[in-house]
Design a protein around this nucleic acid. Structure first.
Length: 454
RNA sequence: UCCCCGAUGGCUCAAUCGGCAGAGCGGGUGACUGUUAAUCACUAGGUUGGCGGUUCAAGUCCGUCUCGGGGAGCCA
């Protein structure tokens, strides 16, 4: 079935005697002697206008097709005499694949609220805004792979089903096929408790210890009862893990990745980005270009605390060394003090995970958070503790059993080397790229507490 | 999970002190037009989120549940 994508048709430099496009009707305007149809096939934001004369087979073929209907249109690509478009198709034949009942089809030509469109998540890809959002999502994913490929990273697949109950990154979803009422874990499929992954980090470290530079990019699950516009129970996380690297290499990587994706999406999704800049977030392009214009700020946690203490601003939560930075503090640093993305590093060991590398001061660990204006924490990462004795001590200090980490400790037992990695929430990156303020609107079918329709 | 605010026609919202449920858009019908979220006329469309309570009377007051929005916590 030969057809031309609307994206390609609109980019033609010469008229075409015969062209076939397929798509869904966005609007139909009827006159007595002819009809206008605007068709969209998802290949790009723009529609193509088709003219259907009343006395043609195309008009008969079109029938009652109206907003939402799926069509195949064949005709001539000609310069449009009307304003607003360069090309249009003078239809010679139309085949209707599927009609859309006008009384029940929920998408109007008018703007809908995001809340309503979320309730018809299966149909919202047919709107300008969500079509654009999901095209940008695809292009951003491609950019992530391009960047890592260019830096010598290997894409690895870490398990989604995990048996470890000691990852500590958050509440986990239990996976079981036991019949209702049966609770004996030994009788369960794996013979022990299984969960959906909350992070591929530990496995990625194992792979990095052989492949050197690796990254995961896949679904991640958190059973936290988080009700915010920035959290979802299922989200996609990018987790690079880099051997022979320290915290500063890691910060370079995080900054490099973020800027590369922003730049590539600006270049390849210009029309879709323009839609968000015009209708969703008037400052979007300016902010994205500002992000590319100069290096991210880098500040040690200790200095960040001093900045917050001396800024004269009243915070709900007081700041002192040893307390975690609250949202209000992160926002102040990124949005008011630095007014750009800022990397805060060397956090007190007391508020960070066991696997983060102890610094020489014996008080802080080599961890870094990347804070972005309007988004909050985009990246969280660390140089990993590669020294066996220190790692065992940290696990013990936190009241856990080193034996549970036997294979993770093996990585230190045999040929341990300095290494570092981070986790980047892909949806948060998309919020940054589009100006969309709710994470539920950058995932096609979002999973949040109490919501698993579709 | 906590605090605050919401839920009225398919959608977006009105409805004053507790007193006859309305509009715009969308839909249908017709007219008109190289139209551009077309335009004009007519028209249909409601168990006011669920359950319970107060009252002569509840969209409106009270309780509770569900969902949504803003903020917080947890984090990516």
């Amino acid at each position: 079935m030969k057809r031309t994508l609307i994206m390609q048709a609109l980019a033609m430099t010469e008229p075409q005697n015969t062209i076939t496009v397929c798509g869904w009707v966005r609007t139909r305007r009827d006159a007595k002697e002819f009809s206008f149809i605007e068709l969209n096939d998802g290949s790009c934001l723009a529609n193509i206008q088709c003219i259907v004369d009343a006395d043609t087979p195309a008009f008969a073929g079109m029938g009652e097709a109206n907003t939402g209907a799926g069509l195949r249109v064949t005709g001539q690509l000609v310069p449009s005499p009307g304003k607003g478009q360069q090309w249009e198709i003078r239809a010679s034949s139309i085949e209707v694949y599927g009609l859309a009942d006008q009384e029940s089809f929920p998408l109007q030509k008018k703007r809908h609220s995001d809340e309503f469109l979320r309730s018809i998540a299966h149909l919202r890809p047919r709107t300008n805004k969500y079509g654009a959002a999901f095209r940008i999502r695809a292009e951003a994913a491609r950019a992530v792979h391009d960047y890592f490929y260019g830096q010598g990273f290997h894409y690895v697949h870490t398990p989604i089903l995990t048996g470890s109950d000691c990852e500590g990154a958050g509440e986990m979803f239990r996976v079981t096929n036991l019949p209702a009422g049966e609770t004996a874990v030994e009788k369960d499929f794996f013979g022990k408790a299984a969960n959906l992954t909350v992070s591929g980090q530990l496995e990625a470290e194992a792979l990095a210890m052989g492949l050197g530079r690796v990254y995961t990019f896949g679904p991640t699950f958190r059973a936290e009862n988080s009700n915010t516009p920035r959290h979802a129970a299922e989200f996609w996380m990018i987790e690079p893990e880099m051997a022979f690297a320290d915290l500063h290499d890691l910060m370079d990587l995080g900054e490099g990745l973020t800027c590369f994706v922003v730049k590539q999406v600006l270049e390849r999704c210009a029309q879709d980005i323009a839609l968000f800049n015009n209708f969703v977030d008037k400052g979007l392009c300016q902010r994205l270009n500002a992000l590319l214009a100069k290096p991210f700020a880098r500040v040690a946690y200790r200095e960040a605390v001093a900045i917050l203490q001396q800024c004269g601003k009243k915070f709900e939560y007081p700041v002192s060394f040893g307390t975690d930075l609250q949202t209000e503090h992160e926002r102040y640093l990124a949005e008011e003090h630095f007014k750009q993305p800022v990397m805060v590093y060397d956090y007190p060991k007391s508020i960070k995970a066991f696997y983060m590398r102890m610094n020489d001061d014996n008080e802080t660990v080599a961890a870094v958070d990347v804070l972005v204006p309007g988004i909050g924490e985009l990246i969280g990462g660390s140089q990993r503790e590669e020294r066996m004795d220190v790692l065992v001590q940290r696990i013990t200090e936190l009241g856990q059993n080193p034996e549970d980490y036997w294979w993770y400790l093996d990585l230190r037992r045999y040929g341990s080397v300095p290494h570092a990695g981070f986790g980047l929430g892909f949806e948060r990156l998309l919020m940054l790229l589009t100006g969309i303020s709710n994470i539920r609107d950058v995932i096609p079918f979002p999973r949040t507490p109490g919501n698993i329709e579709f």
